[in-house]
């Protein structure tokens, strides 16, 4: 395991629905790296992100994130680590339906245990074109707005690690580029590590490190 790796996936094997998704898979991601994972559907991109987030547990091998072997942590501790160190955008977005957009941002700050920064929240929403959508419930957001709200929530706590599963899939090119610009800007400002999956080669081209699955090895 490299000294400066914030993520180490070591000899991991995992099967889902009785199908081996990753076998003897190894990946190290250093602090500050912008890592993109590309590949066709079903090759294990989301599974890999799930392992890194501690949402999934490998049958073999181990996953170490921020020097913590996730298998050694109980579920609550893994959840806590995720809340305090990671900003995650799920494929399903996972916005809390009972809360407004601002409420979702506020919840993420609460879970991370940080002071609420309303100015930062407003600025984030404004940069993502959601300035007037702060009070809207997720069910009232359009297909283009909801991913941006989820990205804002992932960034609000200024995480050390940004993990996103195809966050720009439903965005038009303008917002796709704007979102990426924002994420890269925050990564530069806060020394944030990025791990993102995508189908979009245009996005992959902007990343310094590209992992193509199913080869199973970093390029």
């Amino acid at each position: 395991m490299p000294d400066n790796a914030v993520i180490s996936v070591e000899s991991v094997g995992i099967s889902r629905a009785q199908r081996a998704v990753l076998q003897d898979f190894t990946l190290h991601i250093s602090a500050g790296v912008h890592q993109v994972i590309v590949g066709p559907s079903g090759v294990g991109k989301s599974t890999l992100l799930g392992l890194i987030c501690g949402v999934l547990t490998p049958q073999h091998g181990r996953v170490i994130v921020f020097d913590k072997d996730l298998a050694s942590l109980n579920a609550a501790a893994r959840d806590k680590l995720r809340a305090t160190h990671m900003g995650v955008v799920f494929q399903t977005l996972g916005l809390a339906s009972a809360l407004s957009v601002l409420g979702n941002l506020s919840l993420a700050q609460t879970m991370a245990g940080i002071q609420h920064d309303d100015a930062f929240a407003t600025a984030l929403l404004s940069d993502l074109g959601l300035a007037d959508r702060g009070d809207a419930k997720p069910r009232h957001l359009s297909r283009g707005e909801a991913p941006r709200a989820a990205i804002a929530r992932a960034l609000i706590a200024r995480p050390k690690l940004f993990v996103a599963d195809e966050p720009t899939a439903s965005l038009d090119p303008h917002w796709r580029d704007t979102v990426l610009d924002m994420v890269f800007a925050q990564a530069a400002r806060d020394a944030m590590t990025i791990v993102m999956s995508t189908h979009d080669q245009a996005i992959a081209d902007r990343f310094g490190a590209v992992l193509t699955l199913p080869q199973g090895q970093p390029s």
Binding site: D79, A83, T84, L95, A96, S97, A98, A112
Partner: peptide
């Protein structure tokens, strides 16, 4: 929702 809140770190 519960799964989501867990993902966000709810105890």
């Amino acid at each position: 929702d519960m799964a989501l809140y867990r993902l966000l770190g709810a105890q």
